[in-house]
Simulated scan of single mutants.
Amino acid sequence: MPKISKKGQQMPESPIRKLVPYAEGAKKRGVKVYHLNIGQPDIKTPEVAINAVKNVDIKVLEYSHSAGFESYRKKLAASYQKINLPINTEDIIITTGGSEALLFAMGSTMDTDDEIIIPEPFYANYNGFSTASGVKVVPVISTIESGFALPPIADFEKLITPKTKAILICNPGNPTGYLYSKEEIFQLAELVKKHDLFLIADEVYREFTYDGLSHFSVMNVPGLEQHAIMIDSVSKRYSMCGARIGCIVSKNKEVMSTAMKFAQARLSPPTFAQIASEAALDTPLSYFDEVISEYKERRDILVNELQKIEGVQVAIPKGAFYCIAKLPVKNADDFAQWLLENYNFNGETVMVAPAAGFYSSPNVGLDEVRIAYVLKKEDLIKSVQILKEALSVYQK
């Protein structure tokens, strides 16, 4: 029988999606499942984006330019400039989601067996993108005790080898909700300049910041132009996960001309989704004010309710819409599966994402889960109530 590739064998399973069969089983048994496991917002997609696709008059559904519609890139650059990001049309290549932008970034800057340093826990698919690119992830651990703040720069420095090509951060962070401060970004900027590395920043949750804090982009660091690569996406900003439109942004001409070769190899990003994404740029600012205020309320409810459960420790997120909670269990994987297979409270249960899948270090985060606060407030209260009852039963 022909053999599967080593790369295919090493490709990690999604820690978020591997529990899906158990959730489906629970639903077939008539159990209601509250999904705290995936960052799929329930906020409505802006009407302006939906209407643009509904009202489109196309006779032939053509390829677009490999870099994406010029009209979209121009409008996107103008929208970045409005929030003081010094980005021009030629600094942008439109991609099929932020996922493809990350693959282009890795493909353009790293060779097989090169290394990328990532503070963990991190978005689980970074493992997948690295495996697909033949790149080795070198984790630097941040802890729940520090609220998942940037680890000391000395911790990064001791991991740098001749194989190190880049540092990758998610800001604000998935799965932690941590928002890096301006000072932390400057520390990283100094480090990558000193060692001649790239700093790749996944900034797809830029708008989602709380407590009067604001996001600081790698594109705003003076003197970092040749090192900074920004990843962006419409998925969370406009609640358009299914559009699969993102972009890779850099002032480094060599990076962008190389990424363009990858873009040409896959021909072009999807046309209808670009039409929707270009139109989404006309979304009124009031949309974001309402969304941010809604998420802040959800965060406050979730954190307050979790803090009431004995033995649960939670890091308070300052951005995005996730938090990591440490539970009084030995194995969160086992607990998450048990919640779906063997437990219900008045015919209801919850689905969480075991956090070990967000680390690449073995045996770390085994007692942690990621919770996405993308459900309405009454559902969050109910979910935490179920979690509390479930923990007391599970511990017995």
Results as ranks from 00 to 15, higher is better:
D111E: 15
E157S: 10
Y359R: 03
K308Y: 00
I381F: 04
Y126E: 07
K318R: 14
V33G: 02
L150H: 02
G365I: 01
K28Q: 09
T45R: 07
M219D: 10
H195Q: 05
K318M: 08
A263N: 06
D111V: 08
S79W: 03
Q385E: 15
E183D: 15
S214A: 10
D91L: 04
P2L: 13
I185K: 04
A336I: 05
L366Y: 05
F345D: 14
V352M: 09
V352C: 04
G128I: 11
A355Y: 00
V369A: 02
P269C: 08
Q313N: 12
V137S: 12
V312Y: 00
H227D: 10
V329G: 01
Q187P: 08
I43P: 02
T283D: 04
E120M: 10
Y359K: 06
V314Y: 01
I43H: 09
F129C: 05
T271H: 10
F186T: 13
E310D: 12
V60A: 06
I94Y: 03
V249L: 11
F335N: 02
L179E: 00
T209H: 01
V384G: 01
S133T: 10
L102W: 07
V20L: 14
V218L: 11
I92D: 03
Q10F: 11
A336V: 04
E310H: 09
S361H: 14
L340Y: 02
I245W: 04
I309V: 05
G68C: 03
Q187D: 15
A336E: 02
M351W: 15
L213N: 11
L197Y: 07
S99L: 13
S239L: 04
P317L: 00
E368L: 07
A279L: 03
V374T: 14
E378F: 03
T131M: 10
E157T: 11
K18T: 13
V350W: 01
L61V: 12
L340T: 05
I144Q: 00
A320P: 00
I200N: 09
M230W: 10
K44I: 08
G107C: 06
W338Y: 02
E207C: 09
K396G: 14
S250D: 08
P162E: 11
F129N: 07
F272V: 07
K251D: 06
Y34R: 05
L85E: 13
E62D: 11
L267Y: 12
L306C: 02
E225F: 04
S217H: 09
A243K: 08
N342Q: 11
D114N: 15
Y22N: 13
S293V: 02
H65S: 14
P354I: 03
A279K: 04
L103F: 10
E278D: 10
A124I: 05
F262M: 12
I275S: 02
I160H: 07
R237W: 03
I87S: 05
Y295D: 00
Q226L: 12
A201P: 05
P222A: 10
I386E: 01
A77K: 02
Y359P: 03
Y210I: 00
S360K: 14
T161M: 06
E305C: 07
G30W: 00
G68W: 01
Y80E: 08
L159A: 12
F122V: 12
N88V: 08
C247K: 12
Q81Y: 02
V31T: 07
D155S: 14
S235Y: 07
I4D: 05
L197I: 08
D202G: 07
V255S: 06
K261Y: 06
E348N: 09
K253R: 15
I87L: 04
E190N: 15
I94M: 12
I169W: 03
D379P: 00
S181C: 04
K74V: 12
